[in-house]
Design a protein around this nucleic acid. Structure first.
Length: 248
DNA sequence: GAAAATGTTATCAT
DNA sequence: TATGATAACATTTT
């Protein structure tokens, strides 16, 4: 199963925690970005996430993994008939397989590269900062704002649809037209729902908790949802025209 | 079997 | 130049 949205990366980080401090004794895969030979002998300094980025910090560099739409991984097992884009084997015999992802090398210090306060899953998450960024682009649509990785790093299309339904805001509302309490709710729910997502995903009950995403009927109003591809991002939006108010 | 979809980035076009 | 559309990637489900 794919791993795109931020909370899923937190699960990945937890499942790979034992790799931290281990030395990479062998590496390979069908990636082109990095020569696997350069990874051998390096020790994994830390494993971090920033939104949808999985970061493997090594002494001389960091590996940035993005799972795009369909990326997956396995710890100490392999997918039948699939070649990993990148695999790492450690001195203690642990194996990490990463499939169908985009790999990039980062040569600068991670703290200078990433704004951790934009990551909705991070301890450094800064709701005040998020509100400030939102106020700076009043013409942006709510559906686009939630998918903006510089504001809500880690939020994906599922979280977007669920947050807007929870706070009863129409996806085509403009950010600048939202009353202050709604703007605040948008920021609060982006984080809250992401953690609900995390808990449900761990219990394998995420999908059954969807109220709006990919749903046909509004559970509050019992009338059909609208489905449309909205905003600059043109991603699927599911919304109720009765109980989600449009602010413009 | 075609189409769509939890996403991003590079390239082409306007 | 800048903005926007399109393609590319890759996998599973409908």
């Amino acid at each position: 199963m794919p791993v795109p949205e931020g909370p899923s990366l937190v699960i990945l980080k937890e499942e790979t925690a034992r790799f931290v401090g281990q030395q990479i004794v062998d590496a390979g895969g069908n990636m082109r970005a990095i020569d696997p030979a350069r990874l051998r002998g390096q020790t994994i300094v830390s494993l971090r996430t920033w939104g949808k980025h999985f970061l493997i910090e090594l002494p001389t560099m960091a590996i940035r993994v993005h799972f795009l739409l369909f990326g997956t991984y396995r710890v100490n097992e392999e997918r039948e008939g699939k070649v990993p884009r990148l695999w790492l084997r450690t001195a203690e015999g642990d194996l990490l397989n990463l499939y169908a992802c985009a790999i990039r090398e980062i040569d600068t210090d991670l703290d200078s590269q990433y704004d951790w306060s934009a990551d909705v899953m991070s301890d450094a998450w800064d709701p005040k900062g998020a509100r400030k960024k939102l106020r700076a682009c009043p013409d942006m649509l709510a559906c686009d704002a939630l998918l903006d990785q510089d504001i809500f790093s880690g939020v994906g299309n599922i979280i977007k649809n669920e947050v807007l339904f929870r706070i009863r805001v129409h996806p085509a509302s403009t950010v600048g037209a939202l009353p202050a309490p709604k703007l605040r709710a948008l920021v609060e729910e982006a984080r809250q729902y992401s953690f609900d997502f995390l808990g449900w995903k761990k219990q394998y009950v995420l999908k059954q908790h969807w109220l709006a995403h990919a749903k046909k009927i509004c559970p509050r109003c019992d009338i059909p949802f609208k489905k449309a591809h909205l905003g600059r991002t043109n991603r699927r939006s599911f919304f109720c025209e009765n109980c989600q108010k449009r602010y413009n």
